[in-house]
Design a binder for these strands. Structure first.
Lengths: 125, 125
DNA sequence: CTTGACCTACGAGAACCGTCGTAGTATCGT
DNA sequence: ACGATACTACGACGGTTCTCGTAGGTCAAG
């Protein structure tokens, strides 16, 4: 009974929760509506299912329930990246990075950041 | 009518096709069976659907049809990495790499490879 | 010519995904 | 007190994913 890989819609909601912090259905709905049309009850239902799956935690002490991501952003990102790494890239992080940079040309800043990240990563070990 | 993001099962089959090259249903089935139980007709049906979707191409000139991946490995990998990058990492390649390395600790060799990749990448530009 | 091996086509079912409408309940403003 | 407002619960539906069984066609060996 581990936490399942979030689906597309679930990931979108998790992203909102990570950036907004604990939020009501209404808050999540408003944020999502700002980007694309979505019905209130759709978000509600999604959140309820995510609670059952253990993807979010629900605080029912108030009338408007407050939802929180069950896992911190970094943990879920590691799960997603690791999953794709294994399934589509035969475990090669280099291939994964190549794929990412092919899809979206990095800025000079991003390249510098990547370089610094590798330095730091290797440094503390 | 662009090519859709391959599902889990589809990606597994594409992986076989990429490493084996053009292959019959039987060949794909045998490779997959080596890793996990799977019915012959399941693989067949999957391949047929993938053909409809345009994920693979089918050569029917022989009795046993021969399937080939429609896109080279790198193109699909770029699609997958780019998709995850946008959906789960707000476009930050550094975060994606961090996630990948968190999920699977890299060997010294892999780190050197990453470093070299960045050098080469920045070099030719 | 018949039988068995091998192949494709296809239907179907179980589970999941994303979406939404409706119903029911609590709360607030007047 | 009562109607409007705000919430949750829940069923349902259309689409997709993955699985497999069955049917039917071809071909070669005996």
């Amino acid at each position: 009974m581990s936490i399942p890989r979030p689906t597309d819609a679930e990931l979108e909601i998790l992203t909102v929760l990570w950036s907004r912090g604990p939020a009501t259905v209404r808050a999540v709905h408003e944020t999502i509506t700002g980007r694309r049309p979505a019905q209130y009850t759709t978000v509600l239902k999604q959140l309820q299912i995510m609670d059952e799956k253990g993807l979010v935690k629900r605080d029912e002490s108030e009338r408007a329930h407050v939802y929180t991501a069950a896992q911190p952003r970094e943990a879920t990102q590691a799960q997603l990246a690791g999953d794709l790494l294994a399934r589509g890239f035969a475990g090669s992080a280099t291939s994964l990075l190549l794929g990412a940079l092919s899809a979206k040309k990095p800025s000079k800043k991003e390249l510098a950041e990547l370089r610094k990240f590798l330095d730091d990563y290797e440094g503390r070990r």
